[in-house]
Structure formats: structure tokens, C-alpha cells
Amino acid sequence: MKGIYIKSGLISLALLLTPPGVLSAVKQKLIKPENLEALPNGYGYLLIDVDVAGIAPSFSYVKVKSSKKNPRKKKKVKYSKNGTHVVTLKHSENGLYALPMPAGTYQITQINAPFFDLPYKLDTSTKNEWRFKIEAGKTNFAGHLSIKKERSTRYLDVNLINRFATEKERLENTLQQLLSLAPLAHGVGVRDDFAQALAEKESSR
């Protein structure tokens, strides 16, 4: 009996300490590109190359209302009232995954990668490289998300890498049907003129 009290006590404490956004978090699961449904108006696809390991990794994101603030300066960034979304990354295999989302800029705020009794959590809410943007009617490639399998007790390797050029050929070859309906766009959340410069050159040839 004593054990049960302790357990419930701990859970109560955890509930009291949990930020309100997390309690109301909407849970989502990434979808394989071949299983995607047609986009509603005002929506685009988030496309992400997932290479994760671990027991039950996930990431949380929020919509950024004002993208003018520089998160690295740790100034207040306004997030959408819709609150936090949690995307589970527990998949049978790594590779390309997508998620239909309303157009806008988003901030990945936290990566969770628990490992047995080690509750790995990485706060990414102030890092601008953890942003992505969704253009309506497009397949927005946000990059390569990796959570390394090998880790130490105090840290793990987590990255969202801007790999538009590296992956462009593969995406165009493997996602022909999807891209014919929703063309490929560069979905990183920081200013990056490369895709535009590349496209300009294509059209001017």
C-alpha cells in the first residue's frame, strides 16, 4: 500500500509541475508519403527525413505567431494559442515521413529520447535551426532529423540538418507522385536563399 501512495504522490507532483501546454498537447504521428491524403486548403506537407533510435523518441512543436524575434537572444517568442503538438517518432523503420499542417512557421521546442531510466530531454525552443516553415500546397522539406543510438549518460546526439541540396535528387526520384501534387519546397525556418536561387537559374535557362 505504502508503495502505491508514493507512486501516486509522485504522479500528482509531476502533474503539478508540468507546464499547461504539455497537458493539452495534441499527439500526432508522422505518415509515410505513400499513405498521405489530399491536402485541405491552406495546408502543406511537412516532409522530414527521420533517422532516429531509442525506445520512444518524440518531438514537440508549436506554431510561431511572430518570427521577428531572434530565439537565440532568448527574447520572448510568441507561440500560437493552439498549444503544443507532440509528434511520436516511434516507427518501424527510418526514412521519409510527412505530416499535413496549416501553413506557417513552427518551432520544435523539445526533443524527447528516453533511454531506460535516463529521461533525455533537449530544449530546442530558443534555437532557430529547430524551426521549419510550411507553405500551403507544397511539400516542405525540413531536413534530416537524427537521434543517435549511441549516447552517454549526460548527452545524446540530436540534430535537424538542412539537407535540401543533398536530398533533392533522392526526393525527386522517390516521391514523384507526391511532388506532382504538392511541389517540393525548402522548409527550413531560417532565411535560406539557396532553393530560390537554384529555381531562378532553372527558369532562366
Binding site: D49, D51, L122, H144, S146, K148, Y155, L156, D157, V158, N159, I161, R163, T166, E167, R170
Partner: peptide, 10 residues
């Protein structure tokens, strides 16, 4: 935090 890259394609 330590960062690493994973192999994508060759």
C-alpha cells in the same frame, strides 16, 4: 549537447 551527422547516401 554533442552533434553528429548520420549517413544519408553515398
Amino acid at each position: 549537447m554533442m552533434f553528429r551527422v548520420a549517413l544519408l547516401l553515398i
